[in-house]
């Protein structure tokens, strides 16, 4: 290779092959972005259409927007308002319980030596590989026995079982990256184990803990199968609310799209807020 063909060197000019590769790369990126964003774009458009416009391609992009759908979904019989309340309570309840528990468990897995540690950790992770369909019936029967069917507490419990293993695993990774010397130096400085964890380890692993919290919130917020089986009327969450729009009079796409916005929007806001934290956490430990 001649010196002139080294990228980044002044006077460098891309050859035809390199230029073609560049275009291909751009095209690939565009296709992937389109595949992800187009459905969301379509849902957003549909949410502001009157039913007549939903089924005609003439009004695919140009139509008179309406806020009617976003109002209708909060009215009887849809009542998405109460479902939003349920979703918020279940998701935040799950995260508020899961994160402290997961942090403590992760700390133990990261720092303590005890018999069967490896095996136990494996079991925790492996519990995620059990198909939900297998355990949904036992859950149903258990909650029925306990008289907890159609309660938000039951949903929180179920979601805890989903979120905890992920959270333990994620947070453990971040605690592993916290130098033990930091903890030892805090102990020498006079800190008890509890203070070491709350004042040294948790702040140092905070990006990971926030990541796990957001991830757990998202999982719970979107959870469908268990909510479908366990809730009936009082504890219905947003995703279950959406199936209500499939009526015997046909599918009410414009209302479903409006509900879809209500489900997606909070996640969108949350991810924007934690975006920086998230990126920081993904690259944490890569460089000193």
């Amino acid at each position: 290779m001649s010196a002139a063909s080294v990228p980044g060197v002044p006077g460098y000019r891309a050859g035809p092959a390199e230029r073609a590769a560049g275009w291909l790369r751009a095209l690939a990126v565009f296709v992937i972005i389109a595949a992800i964003l187009l459905p969301i774009f379509w849902i957003v458009l549909t949410a502001f259409k009157v039913p007549r416009d939903v089924y005609t391609l003439d009004a695919a992009l140009w139509f008179a927007p309406t806020l009617e759908n976003l109002r209708t979904v909060f009215e009887h019989p849809w009542n998405l308002g109460s479902k939003i309340v349920n979703s918020v309570l279940v998701a935040s309840g799950t995260v508020l319980l899961a994160i402290p528990m997961a942090t403590m468990a992760a700390y133990a897995f990261a720092r303590f030596e005890f018999r069967g540690k490896q095996a136990l950790f494996l079991v925790v992770i492996a519990s995620q590989f059990i198909p939900a369909a297998v355990i949904v019936l036992p859950y149903f029967l258990m909650f029925k026995q306990a008289g907890m069917l159609d309660t938000r507490s039951a949903l929180v419990l179920v979601n805890l079982s989903i979120v905890l293993p992920y959270a333990v695993w994620m947070i453990k990774g971040f605690i592993d990256a916290v130098p033990v010397e930091m903890e030892e130096s805090a102990m020498v400085d006079g800190a008890s184990r509890a203070r070491v964890i709350t004042e040294i380890v948790v702040p140092a692993a905070l990006p990971g803990i926030i990541t796990a919290a957001v991830f757990g919130f998202t999982l719970t917020w979107n959870e469908f199968l268990f909510a479908l089986i366990i809730s009936k009327q009082d504890a219905l969450t947003l995703p279950i609310g959406l199936i209500g729009f499939r009526t015997d009079r046909g599918d009410l796409w414009e209302l479903m799209a409006a509900g879809g916005i209500l489900i997606t929007a909070p996640m969108f806001v949350v991810s924007l807020l934690v975006h920086r934290q998230f990126i920081g956490s993904l690259t944490a430990g890569a460089v000193r």
Binding site: E181, M182, E184, A186, M187, P203, A204
Partner: peptide, 20 residues
């Protein structure tokens, strides 16, 4: 006696500073 009650001070090789 646990470390925190021995009243010792230590300088670590990698200093063990609290980054936050």
């Amino acid at each position: 006696v646990p470390t925190q009650r021995r009243d010792v001070a230590m300088v670590f090789q990698n200093y063990g500073l609290y980054p936050h």
